[in-house]
């Protein structure tokens, strides 16, 4: 046993492609599975949330405007970077909440899930588009387009697999997102943010906040520039808040609580389609 003192990391928020402290300068401590201090986390304020949403909005059009091929490459790059940090993720998960074997399973699954969605970016539009044989001299086709800015309320169980399973389909489809991470496992989200940061994902496409979700969900769900909310946290109070606020700007709302993200079947192009809009275009056919 070395006498060397560990360097403890304070996890920062990830907003607009930058790691920053909370503007409120509030922190909280996350505990590991033995109830020992695991990490210091920023307690994001509603202003941090606002900034994150602004960053997400700013980034979204450009991200959606990238080629599907490019988005696929970037998601695959995320998988590559995670693979490189596989041991770190396993160690963090094991210490925070898991056994070594389960942690290994989860990290592997998370990496494979990224690869899965990386492959979808240039394929799901072909499955969900249509050319519609209208009864008039018009060419008519329907294609999916991203919904826009998606708020993601992450689950507490299987924090890493859950996060990846939520973020990947949302950004594979050209949306940007603001993630409210698990409170107790926020440090995993911070590490994932570092992976994202080093994976060519443009700043603002994924924004990761740690903090007290009860404080943030009301502002996320009532924010008029958030187009959709995805809630995978099994928290009746937060769900209720979302249900009550979504109508303010007719947000798309999906609740994924109860999903076992460790199951092979917890991935599908329909998760991408949950945050897509269908656009239909008409044009006359003539000379």
């Amino acid at each position: 046993m070395s006498n060397r003192l560990n360097v403890l990391k304070t996890c920062k928020l990830y907003i607009g492609g930058k790691f920053s402290r909370s503007e409120s300068e509030h922190y909280f401590q996350a505990l590991d599975k033995k109830q020992k201090p695991l990490a210091n986390l920023c307690r994001a304020s509603r202003k941090d949330l606002r900034n994150a949403i602004q960053a997400a909005r700013k980034a979204q059009a450009d991200w959606a405007g990238r080629t599907a091929y490019n988005r696929g490459q970037i998601l695959y790059r995320m998988a590559e970077m995670m693979e490189g940090r596989r041991d770190q993720f396993i160690a963090e998960l094991e210490r925070a909440a898991s056994s070594k074997r389960r942690a290994e399973n989860e990290v592997d699954l998370a990496i494979d899930r990224l690869v899965h969605y990386a492959g979808w970016t240039d394929k799901y539009p072909a499955l969900f588009s249509s050319v519609n044989p209208v009864a008039s001299p018009h060419f008519n086709f329907s294609i999916p387009e991203p919904t826009g800015v998606v708020g993601i309320v992450a689950p507490d169980d299987h924090a890493l697999a859950g996060l990846v399973s939520l973020i990947a389909p949302v950004i594979a489809g050209g949306n940007s997102c603001v993630v409210l991470s698990s409170e107790k496992l926020g440090s995993i989200a911070c590490t994932l943010a570092e992976v994202i940061h080093s994976s060519d994902v443009p700043g603002g496409v994924v924004n990761v906040l740690t903090g007290f979700r009860d404080e943030l969900v009301p502002h996320l769900s009532s924010h008029m520039d958030v187009n959709a909310v995805l809630c995978a946290a099994d928290d009746p109070g937060q769900k209720k808040t979302i249900q009550e606020n979504a109508h303010l700007n007719v947000k798309r709302v999906h609740f994924y609580d109860g999903t076992d993200w460790m199951k092979e079947g917890a991935q599908s192009p329909y998760y991408i389609m949950d945050f897509q809009e269908i656009k239909t275009t008409w044009h006359p056919v003539g000379t």
């Binding site: 008039s136 008519n140 700007n249 007719v250 809009e277 239909t280 275009t281 008409w282």
Partner: peptide, 29 residues
């Protein structure tokens, strides 16, 4: 940002053609 684009035409409808909105114009087709 809208669910139906009419190019060089307008207000055309057909059962084979999905119709519906983005943003506060609704959801689903």
């Amino acid at each position: 940002r809208a669910g139906v684009i009419w190019a060089n035409t307008f207000n055309k409808f057909d059962p084979t053609s999905p119709f519906g909105g983005y943003k506060e114009s609704g959801m689903g087709r």
